[in-house]
Structures are given as C-alpha cells and as structure tokens.
Design a protein around this nucleic acid. Structure first.
Length: 429
RNA sequence: GUGAGUGUAGCUCAAUUGGCAGAGCACCGGGUUGUGGCCCCGGGGGUCGAGGGUUCAAAUCCCUUCACUCACCCCA
C-alpha cells in the first residue's frame, strides 16, 4: 500500500512538547499565585473577536492590523479576527461587562495564545502565548508603579536573571505631537544620511527613527531631540513620581528614551523587558499606559496601564521548572502472570497520587531495569515468580543500588502501599 | 513582504574528482539461572525533502518545487 503524504503543522504554528510544557506550567503557576497576591483576577477571553475591535484599538495603520492578522468572514458576513493581542479584548470586556460599575478600578490578568502572521524566526511564532496584566480605572503613577513592581517581582520569581527593565515616557496627546514634529524636522535636516527605511518612517511614524539599527542612522539620531525634553509638565510629573516609587522599592530599571511602541494606543509610561539569548527577538515583555483606549472603543473615559510577557520567549530565559523528575517507582512484571498484579499495584499507587511507571512483561529483568533507570525512576518494583508466591514484591533502590527483597505486600490497602513506597523513596532524603 | 543559509537514520552530522549510504548518540538484544548505570559484542532501522533532467552510473552536476532556519521588517 502506498504511503500517503504526511501533514505538517501550519507554518509558524508548533507543538509545545512535555519538557517545554512543564516549564510553561511553572511560569503560569507562578503568575497565578503572584498576580492574585497583587489583587489581579484571571479573565478568560475569547480568542476570536470582531475585526473592528483591533482596527479601532491597535490602529488602522499599524503593521499588525494592516498585514499581520488572521481573519475570515463568518457565514453571516461578520468580519472576525484571531486576536493578535489581548489588551483590546480586556478593554472590550471592561465596557461590555460593566467592570467599572461596582469598583472604579479593574485588575485583570490573562494567559493564552495570540496570533500574528509574521515571518517566523527565533522566538517568534505565528501562534504565541502571552501572560498579561491590566489595571484599568487608574491614572495615578502609583498604578504604574504597582504594575511594574509586579512585573519585576515576577521576573525575579521565575529566575529570569538576565532580564532588564527599560522605561520611557511617550508623552500624551498634548506633548507627543509636538515632539513628533520636532523629530520630523530633525530627520528632514539629515535626509542625506538616513537609510531608505528611515525616509519612509519619517512620513509614517517619525518616532521609529529612534530605534533604527543602521549604524549611520544611529549616529545621526544620537543627537536627535529626546522625548524627555519635550514632555509637558503633567507628563514630566507623572514620570518623576513613578520613578520615585520604583526607587523606593528598589526596582531595578534603566531609562531608555529610544523605546517606541508599535501599537497606537500607548500614552506616557512605556517599558520593555529585554533579555539575552533570544537572538534578534530580545523582548520578553512590554507594556505601558493606554489612557485613551477604552474611550476610543466607545466606553467611558477610563485610563489603564498594563503589560504582556511572551511565554515562548520567557521559557527560554527563565530557570523556573527546569528540573525534570522521573517517577517515584516503576513496576516491572517479569512474566505474563505478573501483569495483572503489576497493573493493580500501579493503579493503587497512582490513586494515592504517586508518579508510577508500568512496563509490559516479555523482556529480561536486565532490560526492564535498564528502562526504569533511563526513565529516572527512584525505585524499581520487581514482580516475578518468587514475589507472586509469597505475595510480596521486591523493591530495588536504583540510586543506592540496594535490594529489599519481598518487602511490599501486594494485597495491602492503597494508603499503606503508598506510605511503604514513600518510606523507601525517602530512605536517604 | 525582502535577503541569506540549510534539507542524508529518532537526534547531531559525515560521505574525496559523480562509483555499493556512514559515524556518534538514542533504541533493541547478548556478554550462563532474576539485577540498571561503565565496558565489550551484535542487531533493527534511510523515498539521501519532493519532481524532472544529464550520465553506463547522481546524496553529489543542472532545472523546478516544497519545507525549515536565521536576519531585515515588525513585535511578546
């Protein structure tokens, strides 16, 4: 029979296998625990939204909306899109579910997949996972400080030691246009040196001139006007208070006036978390303040601040959950007749919450022990002729290399079996 | 969307001027009765990414195509 063609995963979509998945779980568990301590509750958002939501929040002219979204037309003609980010959904939910009604501030976090049709490369996938937190209804710098403290503590908790926090202020609707104009004028004076990409940026988004990687552009832009000098009094005060609060709690960060955000809705506070070891995609997290977003979506004029962490990237950088552990014991039936009792033993131990492996019969004891060893099991439980006759299994400690012949009574109740195994596992800690 | 690189065993990779497709690791078995790891011996495994062309002969040369990777762009 001819073999049919195999089916591969869609480009940019991948399987997260158990080893990586285990690290992700550690990252997620840490997030749930810590975020709850800071008063954030988990929100589970739909993966599909109306396309209009992103057009109005992320920005009609952003790259994401212009060419990176996965969308389709539903049977009733509605244009739907796989979410490219979650802040827009949180804002939508805030409005739709009246989250500001009982309590003016809403503290929400989410964990889940996002979709963007970019060219895949290291640390960049078309389906990627984010952990994010949003604090709506608060315009004061304390809100920014709380969120950044949460972010810093979380990174510390999961062992993302090389990650560093970079902070900037993008100004607001009064001072940013002024700065943008100053930057444009500066760029126009240096047209001859700037790269073709920067010529384009000059028209569409002059702020992007700041993070061009071409050496000639960098040299020119080193003398460019800095946002800090263009901030209006209110924005400068906001930044100053935020920095004082961060300093008070010893949150490590550096100011980086070149940070620019790709999404249109950011105001004032903007930050990134960058790390080594990720190639060109070195941002593990980013966020900022988005005071106009909820209103732009037709809701009340409610401010907000938030961040998102890339789980795919964080998993590479963080040390949390890195240790694999094998099963406490593996049951080894030496012959066919031992299969039934071996199954029963494994089942009862597993029901007591122990991680227990079970091998099929038909191979030599030597081969069975080798399997148990390679799985990283602590104990091998041997069930052969002798053991069946006396009704007690032999337990071999694979770490110490010691046998305890016929110590495990097969018809003992589950809890008793489990504590006997536990005692053997904990024999030397 | 643009550019570069790579496709050979489960994994990492070799294969000289075109001349029988290999190694390490992994897997399975053995090294006297039921004892793992180290060592020794043996074994199973391949559409050489796919399709076409040149040739007595192609993993190797030519064309086409697909996939993956990295970088630009953009972003978490």
């Amino acid at each position: 029979m001819p073999r049919s063609a195999t089916i591969a995963a869609v480009k940019g979509f991948r399987d997260v296998l158990p080893e990586e998945s285990r690290r992700w779980q550690a990252l997620e568990d840490a997030a749930r625990e810590l975020f709850l301590a800071y008063g954030f509750g988990e929100i589970r958002l739909p993966i599909l939204e109306r396309t209009e939501l992103f057009a109005r929040s992320v920005g009609e002219t952003s790259d994401i909306v212009e060419k990176e979204m996965y969308g389709f037309t539903d049977r009733d003609g509605t244009s739907l899109t796989l979410r490219p980010e979650a802040t827009a959904s949180v804002a939508r939910a805030y409005i739709e579910d009246n989250l500001g009604h009982a309590d003016a501030q809403a503290r929400l976090f989410y964990i889940g997949p996002m979709f963007r049709r970019e060219r895949p490369q290291k640390g960049r996938y078309r389906q990627f996972y984010q952990i994010g937190a949003e604090l709506l209804g608060r315009a004061d710098p304390l809100a920014d400080a709380e969120l950044l403290l949460l972010l810093a503590r979380y990174l510390e908790r999961v062992g993302a030691r090389e990650a560093r926090l970079e902070l900037n202020s993008l100004g607001d609707e009064t001072c940013r246009p002024v700065y943008r104009e100053r930057l444009r004028k500066f760029g126009e004076r240096h047209l001859d040196v700037l790269c073709p990409d920067c010529h384009r940026r000059l028209e569409r988004n002059p702020l992007r001139l700041l993070d061009c990687k071409v050496e000639a552009c960098r040299q020119v832009m080193a003398d460019a006007p800095v946002m800090r000098d263009s901030l209006c009094a209110d924005c400068a005060a906001h930044l100053g208070q935020l920095r004082a609060l961060l300093d008070q709690e010893r949150v490590p960060y550096v100011m980086n006036f070149r940070i620019v955000r790709g999404l249109d809705y950011y105001r004032r506070t903007a930050f990134e978390v960058v790390a080594e070891g990720l190639g060109a995609q070195n941002a593990v997290g980013a966020g900022g303040r988005y005071d106009g977003l909820v209103a732009a979506l037709g809701g009340p004029d409610v401010p907000g601040v938030g961040f998102a962490l890339g789980l795919d990237r964080l998993g590479v950088v963080a040390s949390a959950g890195a240790l694999a552990s094998g099963p406490a014991a593996v049951i080894l039936p030496l012959e066919e007749r031992a299969v039934g009792p071996a199954f029963a033993l494994a089942t009862r131990l597993r029901q007591q919450g122990l991680s227990v492996g079970l091998e099929p019969a038909g191979r030599s004891l030597k081969a069975l022990l080798r399997s148990a060893d390679r799985r990283g099991a602590r104990l091998a439980v041997i069930l052969g002729e002798e053991e069946l006759q006396v009704g007690r299994a032999t337990v071999r400690d694979l770490v110490r290399g010691q046998d305890r012949r016929q110590v495990l009574t097969l018809d003992a109740p589950g809890p008793e079996l489990a504590s006997a195994v536990q005692a053997l596992v904990g024999a030397d800690g």
